[in-house]
Design a protein around this nucleic acid. Structure first.
Lengths: 229, 229
DNA sequence: ACCTGAACACCGTTCAAGT
DNA sequence: ACCTGAACACCGTTCAAGT
């Protein structure tokens, strides 16, 4: 019996959860209709009975992840009235981020969706509730959602890629030397960071600390606008 | 003579500029090796002589666009010393954004790169120069780049998609009614925005105003940290 | 040095056919 | 109602062959 449970019938839900598992284990690139069918013990064409097409699978992926986020943040229940709004929003967003860390492929799926899953809207509705409790006007809350952008869901678009940086000090030194000619400020900045923290590798940054820095910058700015906007 | 200039020999540069034109006119999805070859009057396989593979084409795309951005912002030459840093950075970023508006496909290409083009690094180096002139420590400047994220280059990841919203007031009303049950705050926010600005369509937002709101929030926050970080 | 034709291993998707 | 086999129109890419 090589096939795992060939009896249990196919379901949209079973297809989507298999897709999440596939993406978690093998990466998003391996989520093809054919391989997804294989993972679920069926032929590629059988999927189309439960799912409109591949776009629908990707939409479903965001719904599953957003539901996981909502299940997590709904348990928080922090006080949000008045000045507490900031702490409540902060924890909500950092909790969402922890879910996404378990599904590293998820941000790129969220980014490519052209339609917003109701489950994501529900997440936003919860965020809005916290801001309203903090005294935000709807207008300010609206601006806030835009200002947070993908950060509201717990991820940011980093344009340096840390993972491609060099690893040995020799490589680091060589790169800094090359940089110094054409990119003096970048070279100086990296040299300075290496100096301050010799254990840091060039190009590597503490993602969590950077995420929180940017998040707090925005939240503090919004806090200052609460009464006047 | 149906072919346009079959004489002029193929070049990496000619390939990349043809790819930009193709993406501009037909969308990023139509940038395939086969169609790109056709646009340039050759066979698909000829491209591989000037370009490593498709990833290389996409990397090249970001280089071309980043160069266009650099050509634009290098002309600005605004004073950046002291408190002027903010205005200089602001204009630099808004100018970058205007270039990207001419190439709406570019953000999604930047997002998928795993390596950073030297031309992009040059752009960052210029940003760093302005911050340094404003009195930033390297440490703060580093945090600032992370906090700005893709906004430094002039784009943000919006998670609502405005373009898929309804267009008629009737549809708007219907959607708001449905929303009100499960998403009370979202519904109220949208109703409020519609009320404040009857010409606005549900889901449509002034991208430029929202971009500037978020940008200013971050820049103002950074300004407050200039002397203490 | 530069370009190409034929071929390979993949995609997503349709459609008629099976149970 | 649910699943499938064969087929179609595409991909990116290799490789031996042309000039």
């Amino acid at each position: 019996m090589p096939e795992p449970e060939p009896r249990v019938p196919l379901t949209r839900d079973r297809v989507l959860h298999a897709a999440v598992a596939l993406a978690d284990n093998q990466g998003l690139g391996s989520v093809t209709m054919r391989r997804l069918a294989e993972a679920v013990g069926a032929e590629a064409m059988s999927l189309y009975y439960h799912v409109a097409n591949k776009e629908d699978v990707l939409d479903g992926l965001t719904t599953v992840i957003a539901r996981e986020i909502n299940d997590t943040v709904d348990k928080l229940d922090l006080p949000a009235h008045g000045a507490n709004w900031k702490n409540a929003v902060r924890h909500r967003i950092l909790s969402a981020r922890e879910v996404l860390l378990r599904h590293p492929w998820a941000p790129s799926v969220f980014e490519t969706r052209t339609t917003t899953s109701p489950e994501v809207l529900k997440y936003y509705d919860g965020l809005l509730a916290l801001m309203r409790a903090g005294g935000f006007s709807y207008d300010l809350a609206h601006h806030a959602l835009h200002a947070l952008g993908s950060r509201a869901l717990g991820f940011t678009q980093e344009l340096f890629d840390p993972s491609t940086g060099p690893t040995t000090p020799e490589e680091t030194a060589a790169i800094l030397a090359n940089l110094a000619d054409n990119l003096p400020h970048l070279a100086a900045m990296m040299a300075d960071i290496v100096h301050n923290d010799p254990t840091s590798t060039l190009g590597w940054c503490d993602d969590k600390a950077e995420f929180e820095f940017g998040l707090d910058l925005i939240l503090n700015g919004l806090d200052g606008l609460r009464d006047s906007f």
